[in-house]
Amino acid sequence: MQVIVNGSERVLTPGTSLNDIIKEAARSPEHVVAAVNGDIFEPMDYAGVILKEGDEIDLMTFVGGG
């Protein structure tokens, strides 16, 4: 199954959730703003979002400091 993560093509096994790929990218899912095909999801929903062929995933990880 092919998807696009932050502009790059990736092959995932069917059944991969949004949470699965966020865990690879960041220590804390709460620090990530995640959009799938333009829809923004809350961290509590990440595990329930099962990715589909052709999905475009945009992950933005915030770090502290201000």
């Binding site: 620090h31 933005m60 915030f62 201000g66």
Partner: peptide, 10 residues
């Protein structure tokens, strides 16, 4: 300053 708060507001 907090990363989680930054993500929440975004």
């Amino acid at each position: 300053d907090n990363a989680a708060s930054k993500a929440e507001l975004t």
